[in-house]
Simulated scan of single mutants.
Amino acid sequence: MIDGLEERSIGGETGLATRGEPVYGEPTADGWRLWDRSRSKLAVLLDRGVDTGLEAGSTVLYLGAASGTTVSHVADLAGPTYAVEFAPRPMRDLLTVAEDRQNLFPLLKDARQPESYAHVVEPVDVIVQDVAIRGQADVALANRQFLKEDGRLVLSVKARSEDVTRDPEAVFAEVKERLAEGYTVRYAESLEPFHDDHLGIVAEPDR
């Protein structure tokens, strides 16, 4: 188990928890806050015991941070956490989340244009990507430049964002094939029943 991540029973619910200020109405007790798997793809992987590469003190680039639900838990555990979000509205919420986390750095940027934040982001141990747009593998490849040689990509692929008309399995196969142009996939499994038509991927950069 990662330091700072524990299984806890809080408010009648049992699951993984981190220590930090509450963000989205999650159950809390004694400074611990439950990490809701139904609202976080990364939480599903961690609950399954998947080796995501995330450790206490890791440097993280989070793509698609939205209003901060998952990235707040990541920042509770990690070291410097760079949170990229394109939309101004959720960014306002993310800025509020960052007020309680000095290691969380919100960036109002487009994950498809990593050159716009390359001057800010240092080499990272983990890239966590949850970007619901077409071309999710392309985003992962474009941001590979930030990942250390022994780092990990943790990618949540939303099939319906790639093509709502196609069979999700066909979409997933295509994404994995595209990823192979810069990564070696070590894990790829459905995130159901918590997230329909989503595939969780853990990959390493090709050396």
Rank of each mutant, 00 (worst) to 15 (best):
V164Q: 08
P168M: 01
E122V: 07
Y82E: 02
G25K: 10
A56D: 08
T59H: 11
L63F: 10
L5K: 13
R39M: 14
L5G: 15
L107E: 05
L153P: 12
E13D: 14
L155E: 13
V121I: 05
V171R: 10
V71A: 00
I133E: 14
A118N: 05
E55M: 05
L45R: 03
S72W: 03
D150G: 03
E177S: 09
S156R: 04
G57F: 07
L77S: 07
D76I: 11
Y183M: 04
I2D: 09
E85V: 12
G53H: 02
M91I: 10
R178K: 12
L63P: 15
P22E: 01
E115Y: 08
F105Y: 15
L46C: 09
W32Y: 07
R33S: 10
K148P: 02
V84E: 09
D93K: 02
R144P: 13
D150K: 03
R33Y: 01
S40I: 12
Q113L: 10
D76A: 05
T165D: 12
S190I: 00
R178C: 00
A142W: 15
D130I: 14
R166Q: 10
I2W: 08
V84Y: 02
P90W: 05
T96K: 15
V60F: 06
E189G: 08
H73K: 11
V120P: 01
R8M: 09
L46Y: 07
T70M: 12
G64E: 09
G12M: 11
V121P: 12
S72Q: 10
E85F: 09
L63R: 08
